[in-house]
Design a protein around this nucleic acid. Structure first.
Lengths: 189, 189
DNA sequence: TGGTGATAGTCTGAAACGGACGGTCCTGAA
DNA sequence: TTCAGGACCGTCCGTTTCAGACTATCACCA
């Protein structure tokens, strides 16, 4: 059973240290930005607090540079690996959550000018195209490395979801740009 | 330009009161659960604080039952409508955010037993099917009413995104169940 | 030897969180 | 008529999260 004193962020840290070997908090911070942040966001200051806490709990072992910047470096312990494995062994029973200011504005479209909705959809469509492209680059890099199939699967899933959402925004943009007829809710091409 | 003293939750409240007419905080709370919560979550206690604050700011007008439970009821003022319209007039420039414990576990699949990934995918696929179904019901209800095209567009977008993500989970489930070969990252049908 | 930009980490006040808790009201069974 | 139970409604408060300003260090080059 997974431990009640560990949060998702704890497992992010454990998982990344397990994947990358001994890491400094700063290295973890940048690693989070390159991957995990796409589906589990949290402030970077958490990482410093969490590595320290996991150290106290014996799930990470801390080492300190004796020279220069005296950075801390953390490696995972056997207990840490066991905690991570126990957590991974129980499936996640929560559905995914979405958070989108764009959808919030679209939801209230009836109180907006038609032109506002068109502009919103245009911006969102463009944002989604960029995100899809960004995801695609990450996938290329993962494929080139060949390992880490879980991470590739995650990138594929997210990329596809972004693509579909972007296509919706594009349809909404076209519908809102065409003067007559209702906003959004488009059928057919 | 939209006001810096108003948060997204402020606009949720303003938007719902604009849509539904005079509302009690509790009615807003249930309305949020039926819609907005799918793409903008926040604790219900916020609503009570926010209606009161918007009242002080003059964007909502408060009335109080003279009898019985003496519930507060809020209606939107002209200033409130103006603030809502101003916010809707500027497009949202943030990409959507996803938050999924399931993806987090999949991301670290290399440290899990193969059976764990299969079970995770099975549970997530089922969860997604339920969410898609739930979204479909909401869409039916919206279509029956015929108005509120923005809300229908939102439901369609979310439903489609959930469907695509669910299909990924189903593929991952099949791939992880098939003994040999790598987990996830499936190509072709 | 000083300037610049990347690297690295700390700190803090403000928001958000969420759920326990306590009332109020309605209904229907006794 | 009374009363119990459940739905309705709102408050409260300790904890966690949050963002980002801020400081410091380092590497490099002029």
């Amino acid at each position: 059973m997974s431990r009640p004193d560990l949060t998702p962020v704890s497992y992010v840290v454990l998982g990344l240290v397990a994947r990358d070997g001994p890491s400094t908090p700063y290295a973890l911070k940048t690693a989070v930005g390159r991957g995990v942040a796409h589906f589990w966001q949290f402030p970077h200051s958490q990482i410093y607090a969490e590595t320290e806490r996991l150290g106290r709990l014996g799930l990470l072992a801390e080492e300190r540079e004796q020279t220069g910047r005296r950075r801390r470096s953390y490696r995972i312990t056997a207990e840490g690996r066991a905690a991570l494995a126990a957590w991974l062994a129980e499936p996640a029973t929560e559905p995914p959550q979405l958070r989108s200011l764009g959808l919030l504005k679209l939801f209230f479209a009836q109180h907006a000018e038609p032109g506002d909705v068109a502009e919103l959809a245009r911006v969102q469509a463009e944002l989604h195209r960029q995100s899809v492209e960004h995801t695609r680059e990450i996938m290329e890099r993962l494929k080139a490395r060949g390992d880490l199939p879980g991470q590739l699967a995650v990138a594929e899933l997210i990329g596809d979801a972004l693509r579909v959402m972007g296509e919706h925004w594009e349809r909404i943009e076209r519908a809102a740009a065409a003067p007559p007829g209702p906003v959004g809710a488009v059928r057919g091409s």
